[in-house]
Design a protein around this nucleic acid. Structure first.
Lengths: 240, 240
DNA sequence: TATTATTGTCTCATTTTGTTACAATAATAC
DNA sequence: GTATTATTGTAACAAAATGAGACAATAATA
């Protein structure tokens, strides 16, 4: 089976059946937290980037591969957070529509139309360094703010919400800022990351004291740009 | 294919291939934290209880089913904590040995000898209420203290360690004590649970104050039994 | 009846966090 | 140039949480 451009669908010989992964890729643009979503051609579905596991491939490696294909980035912070395994979660009609819109005509019972469990991961990346590339089945891939998401296919909304929950709980432990900010940043920017992830305002002085006391930041020269006010220091994270 | 007693192996028609679950079932006997392990007949392998997912069954339900079959208990605290998906984790020789020791003779390429990913869960149960029943492939199921485990098959040791880690991180959030203690318990018993899970000693007075301030405990009559000393109160957890 | 070990609570020291205040200062307006 | 403005870094004190020790109460035992 192949589409007009004669590119075949993933073959059951190459991939494990019934097992997929989905990616919630978080980025931060200085104001709000965003995730990458695919839009499929000729359909109204938005979806998380995802993929399948090769028969001789670690799940972790498959996910890294998928992330690199879409963002061009390696060595990204990536964490598995839940495996979604309800019977009703896959929607064969949805998959069929997507495939047909792309010139394929999968037979009933094709493995891609069967039941899938999905091992969901989230990634944290620096917004500015990313140049996302669409899937070969999707017409676009774009950033969407998490408090203004379009409607998502299947259970992808639930996957995003769960990811956000886990991210919030991991905020202190996992040094989330390292992965969402450029190398050097101001205290204000760091605080914005925390506030945006948590979804609440933090007290400036307390936040600043806490971060400085943690002994995880290096202070650099001051940044002589910005507004009509005292210039902030730049900081970077210490080497672990 | 069937063994001497003519019980067939699980059929590929009924179960999803390549997907299994494993259970780390924690219990507490007043002194140490224990987990349930299976011992296979004619082999030296100890293993976590596990199972497969039916084709029309939610993963969660499959796991609940497995837990109930082994402990007789329903409505147990159960949490998925990680999906193990490395290529090298399944050991077909090990599975073959177990099956052969039980009178089966699986052909090469049999689905049970193929690659599996495992969705691992941990359960917290009250030690005293459990009457574990062995698998039909295993000769025994018993409690083993987590600081004195026998050697485990495949990557099951890593699964246990990961479970323990997650449990420790969830200790404050998940009210672990509710599930590991009987309905009524003393402050000392509650402290023992925390100490055993954390693997460290806690200060008695601070622990007591913190627990009482949380407003999660109901105090009952005193318990007039025990040692040559003042009798402790009994406590229970408040309804949600 | 005295002894013993453990429990529940109190007190005070220490640490952490919340809150307010204020001097320093880079850009802008004049 | 000089005053104005908004933001930054930090100090100071208040309030809350935690650490550490002391002690009276008391159920079982000797």
């Amino acid at each position: 089976m192949a589409n007009k451009e004669n590119r075949p669908l993933p073959s059951i010989d190459e991939y494990l059946p019934h097992i997929a992964y989905d990616l919630v890729i978080f980025g931060f643009n200085g104001k709000s937290l965003k995730i990458l979503l695919l839009e499929y051609d000729n359909t109204s579905f938005f979806a998380l980037p995802g993929g399948f596991i090769k028969r001789d491939e670690n799940v972790d490696d498959a996910v890294k591969r998928g992330l690199e294909e879409r963002t061009g980035l390696k060595n990204i912070f990536l964490e598995q957070f839940y495996t979604f395994g309800n019977v009703e979660r896959p929607k064969p009609e949805v998959m069929r529509t997507i495939l047909e819109a792309n010139g394929f005509d999968p037979k009933d019972g094709h493995w891609l139309l069967d039941r899938f469990i999905s091992i969901a991961h989230y990634a944290l990346i620096n917004f500015d360094e990313v140049n996302p590339k669409p899937d070969r089945l999707s017409k676009s891939i774009n950033w969407y703010s998490i408090d203004d998401l379009p409607s998502l296919m299947m259970d992808h909304k639930a996957i995003v919400l769960k990811a956000l929950n886990v991210l919030r709980n991991n905020l202190e432990n996992k040094l989330v800022g390292i992965n969402l900010l450029p190398d050097k940043f101001t205290m204000k920017e760091l605080q914005m990351v925390y506030e945006t992830v948590l979804g609440e305002k933090l007290r400036r002085t307390t936040f600043q004291r806490k971060m400085l006391n943690k002994d995880i930041l290096t202070r650099h020269e001051k940044l002589f740009t910005g507004g009509a006010h005292k210039a902030p220091y730049l900081y970077s994270f210490k080497e672990h």
